[in-house]
Amino acid sequence: MATALVSLSLPSLPEGWAAEKDFKPIGKITKDGATQRTIEPVGPHFLAHARRARHKRTFSEDDR
């Protein structure tokens, strides 16, 4: 997919913000945050999805 370009700007880092390796995990996506649905097995992008799913490959492994 093409990369989106956004014209807004990111906020500046607040004074005193600190985290290990500069990354602070706070929340997560729970099971309730998702619905099981069926992707239509049609089109080139589905083929790529199926290939990754069946070979248990990630996006970056697939890129290589």
Partner: peptide, 28 residues
């Protein structure tokens, strides 16, 4: 919303005009 997983998406956002340290706040 309604994106099937696994999914990967990328955006590019400008830093404040004068640059410096920026905060990436990931939210729902």
């Amino acid at each position: 919303p309604e994106t099937a997983v696994p999914a990967r998406r990328t955006v590019i956002v400008a830093a404040p005009k004068n640059g410096g340290d920026v905060l990436i706040k990931i939210v729902e």
